[in-house]
Design a protein around this nucleic acid. Structure first.
Lengths: 183, 183
DNA sequence: GGACCTCCATACGGTGGCGTATGGTTCCGA
DNA sequence: TCGGAACCATACGCCACCGTATGGAGGTCC
């Protein structure tokens, strides 16, 4: 039978958010998609906003897990390369990051998006410092590199970027570790 | 008297689009903001979609004008620097570019956004080739640099980027013209 | 000064989504 | 087996927006 949990709704909401933006996180369409009705939803959540919140928490947990796994890689250069491999190998994740910034008019979303993106940049910055770059240079490079990551997600939406992941990784690595560096 | 032209509506629509996204391009709220009523709107436009189209054409014309003015700068390096100065000195313009990519689920918007962004990148690429970079390298650098531009617009939305325009221009120039180059 | 065109306001019906009310079904423990 | 809790469907009122219908005010031309 099709009994649903709150987490089922949250996951569906996150998917809808990724695919169609905040407006697509609508109770009735979501219910239809889950083969349920609003009655089910309003038992698990007090209102739509709570659903959005749950979806956001779901997303934040997921990204934190990835950061944590990366943190366990001891060598900073290998950590960085792995980070970029994961980042560019998963366009869906980049699309969600982009989407949440797009929907940052909603303060609820803005708060989470800001926190997550700041954490990511701090993480990358610290890694760069580990490789020997001084803090200000590291900050500049991370800004350029992470902005490129987001911008490429944007250009992907327009089907402008056709480059394969390998090329993108090399571009990003060059931005982060500086010119003519290999490894 | 408050007689309105179709262009007044289009400009207001573009402003609303920049500020609140596609959903904010709504006839009744816009009418209220213009101190008019729907009766006025539906005299100038057949429907909402036509208004969005007009706003997009307005935007495309504006960006084309800028490209045209840049095209009249003979020296490619100076052209590039001027381009970046204008780009980073005008966060509102960057915000609109970002917004339109955000709303690219709408095919109407996607078409215009794709065309404009491709034109911009081609223009930058050609300029880089003029400075002596071979085509593939130029393409890579433009991809990284323009993506950074968009990504910085994204991070601005989250109030994460505090860097002053000068710094951003230097970062972007470094990406485009390559390492340790001044001028 | 009357016919006419331009531009606009108001009122209306239609649609889609939110949240509530109410009742029904399934399951579980005593 | 019975009662209550967990879970869900349906029906309803509400609001915001779209698009239409209708009529009215202000100019213009003869």
């Amino acid at each position: 039978m099709g009994r649903l949990s709150a987490d089922d709704w949250a996951k569906a909401a996150l998917t809808a958010l990724a695919e169609g933006g905040l407006a697509a996180v609508a109770v009735e369409p979501l219910a239809a998609r889950l083969g349920a009705s609003k009655g089910s939803f309003y038992w698990h959540f007090p209102n739509r906003q709570a659903l959005v919140q749950a979806a956001l928490e779901h997303w934040e947990r997921d990204t934190d897990k990835i950061t944590a796994r990366l943190g366990r890689i001891p060598d900073p250069r290998e950590r960085l390369r792995t980070l970029l491999e994961w980042a560019f190998a998963d366009p869906a994740a980049a699309a969600i990051s982009f989407r949440l910034i797009s929907e940052a008019d909603d303060p609820q979303i803005a708060e989470v998006a800001k926190r997550v993106n700041e954490r990511r940049m701090s993480f990358m910055c610290a890694t760069l410092v580990e490789t020997g770059r001084p803090e200000p240079e590291a900050r500049r490079r991370v800004l350029a590199g992470y902005a490129s990551y987001l911008g490429i997600a944007a250009l992907r939406r327009l089907a402008i970027v056709h480059e394969d992941p390998m090329t993108l990784i090399d571009i990003a690595l060059a931005e982060l570790l500086g010119p003519p560096v290999n490894g």
